[in-house]
Amino acid sequence: MEITLDELEIERPAEIKRIVGGFGFQRRIAALGLRVGKIVRKVASEPWRGPIVVEVDGTRVALGRGMAMKIFVEEIGE
């Protein structure tokens, strides 16, 4: 089932299925490894809808909730 990166649970690995949003946005997050097909793990989620932190390819990336809501993932290994 596709959920947004925002909704993904902490520590649960997932695969990026779809990214919505403009070309500039897509290119920008792609440059840090957030691309369709990548496996991500959510490391942290700051309170009061603060940013989230994900691990992708061994790197940690922090991104705002608005961005996280444009990235759709599917949990793996259930």
């Binding site: 940690r60 990336v61 922090a62 608005g66």
Partner: peptide
């Protein structure tokens, strides 16, 4: 203001 988008180094 745009949201944060930041690489966190080891």
């Amino acid at each position: 203001s745009p949201e944060i988008f930041l690489e966190i180094p080891p």
